[in-house]
Design a protein around this nucleic acid. Structure first.
Length: 505
RNA sequence: GGCCCGUUCGUCUAGUGGACCAGGACGCAAGGUUUUCAUCCUUGAAACAGGGGUUCGAUGCCCCUACGGGCUACCA
């Protein structure tokens, strides 16, 4: 079914914090929708009541909001196809399960989880694999073998039962994936999946097909871990008579661990020292997040976009709008992408340089308030401009600029030994005298006056600058020294030299 | 085990049969800039998993093998 309105959904399960793989799936859905003037929908898939986690739904919404991904329809802002939470759509699903029952595409099964579990173990003991399929379904307890009356009697007496899909035998199921092309599988390798659970809830398989149909979803864009259940879903569309309305599918490559094997999982972050979640997760076992680690949301989105997709050019920095403009599913890779925390930092550094000094200064000001440091925004903007290129995160600003606010209390002993010579105190005394004479503390003027003074007195630049820096910052690193002097001013500069002359022997 | 998907520098990737002794980025190394450190700039090392085909010609197409990954629940 071509030429229909593009409608895509991001359908997470509220079982905990959404991890960055999920965020990327949401992002690709968003980019595809917006590129095609379509709708981006959030649907909460909470059909498993046992795995519900308090706070997860709000977390998902907040995380995607932070990323700047706006939903056209969702649990929060509604829409014409609601409700958008599967637990609130509970009554909808049964009729479709019944429809499948009537058409003979599904059947009632009474086997208890315990019985099936035992069968699995028995099979395993014989090095066989138990599969609830055509080969075996006639020897189990279900409506295919029980009489109609017996089935009715059991159901009426409240026996728990599930509804299973009756997978056709020996049929080639041909599917098309936008990213992978044609995929074929023989139905005999598949099992009779449960569609409707004994607790009255549908499983993911039934619910997602029904909801995608009802919500007129045009494209299903999800992780590769769903590829194995695509045949079932395709069969379901067929059996329900919805073949013409079936969405197109695109299965995204997985995000892999930075080191070792396997897909990125929720535990990897703490183990490997980088966040796997967009935001801090405050419940139970807490976990750090990109937002709290100081990543800019646009940098975060940018780095995620380039995991498994690229525009084919050498450009690497993109605004969300540019990503929308350039995105296409055809340019999504097939193979899994290993997540690289180092490159993530590089992205943030790039964005740091792109941001205005004022924007960074405002963020820094909030941190300084916590330290009870008072300073004008204007001055802070100057300071940020001096140290911005040295940092990747706002949190690194303090260690790169503290000496603009405080005088050093200690002096790096190694530098003292190396740079503090016998003649140093005398030279610095001369510097103090010079500074007293200077009234224009513009950075460039300071340099001119200084150079003239040193030349006149035949003092080498290196002889004085290192010791001078030591007085002002306590060490041997930092931005341009004249700029520091210019910012902290005459009085403070002189005080620091005097302090150092007193303290360093 | 079965089914499915994949495989270009350490990592993210460009590459759609000749433009490729394979390009970019991160990281790494060396040099330069700088009063210092960082940034920055320049340079460098670094890859088509292996084997068979197809073809005048394969990174690219086909097959096999190996390896990696996913799925295999009344979880999503």
């Amino acid at each position: 079914m071509k030429n229909r309105k593009v409608r895509v959904r991001f359908a997470p399960s509220p079982t905990g914090p959404l991890h960055i793989g999920g965020v990327r799936t949401a992002l690709f859905n968003y980019l595809f929708a917006k590129k095609n003037n379509g709708d981006f929908i959030l649907r909460i898939e909470d059909t498993d009541q046992t795995r519900f986690v308090e706070g997860a739904e709000d977390y998902i919404v907040e995380a995607l909001e932070w990323c700047g991904l706006k939903f056209d329809e969702s649990v929060k802002n509604g829409g014409n196809y609601g409700p958008y939470k599967q637990s609130e759509r509970k009554e909808i699903y049964r009729q479709f399960a019944d429809k499948l029952l009537e058409s003979g595409n599904a059947y009632i099964a009474f086997d208890s989880p315990e019985e099936l579990d035992k069968l699995r173990k028995d099979y395993e003991a014989q090095k066989l694999i138990f599969t609830y399929n055509a080969e075996i379904r006639n020897s189990l307890t279900n409506s295919l073998v029980l009489t109609e009356n017996e089935v009715k009697r059991r159901m009426d007496s409240g026996d728990p039962y599930v509804i299973r899909y009756k997978m056709p035998e020996n049929t080639t199921i041909v599917m098309n994936d936008i990213i992978r092309g044609e995929v074929k599988v023989n139905s005999s390798t598949l099992d009779d999946k449960v569609l409707f659970k004994s607790d009255g809830m549908p499983t993911y398989h039934l619910a997602n097909v029904v909801d995608d149909y009802l919500m007129e979803i045009s494209h299903v864009i999800r992780g590769e871990e769903w590829l194995p259940s695509l045949p079932l879903h395709v069969c379901l569309y067929d059996s329900l008579g919805w073949k013409d309305a079936m969405p197109e599918f695109a299965h995204l490559p997985l995000l892999l661990k930075p080191t070792g094997n396997g897909k990125l999982s929720k535990r990897d972050g703490d183990k490997m020292g980088f966040p796997v979640f967009p935001l801090f997760w405050p419940h139970g076992e807490t976990a750090r997040g990109y937002r709290e680690d100081g990543y800019f949301p646009d940098a975060f989105v940018n780095l995620l976009a380039l995991l498994g997709w690229n525009p084919g050019t050498e450009q690497e920095i993109f605004t969300l709008e540019q990503l929308v403009e350039l995105f296409s599913l055809e340019r999504v890779n097939k193979s899994g992408a290993r997540f690289d925390p180092e490159k993530a930092k590089w992205f943030n550094h790039q964005y740091m340089q792109l941001k205005s000094n004022e924007e960074i200064a405002c963020l820094f000001k909030k941190e300084l308030e916590k330290k009870a440091v008072e300073i004008s925004l204007e001055k802070l903007i100057t300071i940020v401009g001096l140290v911005k290129e040295r940092i990747g995160f706002v949190s690194e600003l303090w260690e790169q600029s503290w000496f603009f606010f405080n005088s050093p209390e200690t002096y790096d002993q190694k530098i003292v030994e190396k740079k503090w010579k016998e003649e140093t105190p005398g030279i610095l005394q001369g510097v103090v005298n010079l500074l007293q004479e200077i009234n224009n503390f513009e950075r460039d003027n300071l340099e001119i006056e200084f150079k003239a003074y040193l030349e006149k007195n035949e003092i080498g630049f290196g002889q004085v600058m290192n010791a001078f820096r030591l007085c002002l910052t306590g060490g041997a690193t930092g931005p341009d020294l004249f700029s520091i002097v210019s910012v902290i001013g005459k009085e403070e500069t002189v005080n620091r030299i005097n302090l150092a002359l007193e303290k360093i022997k």
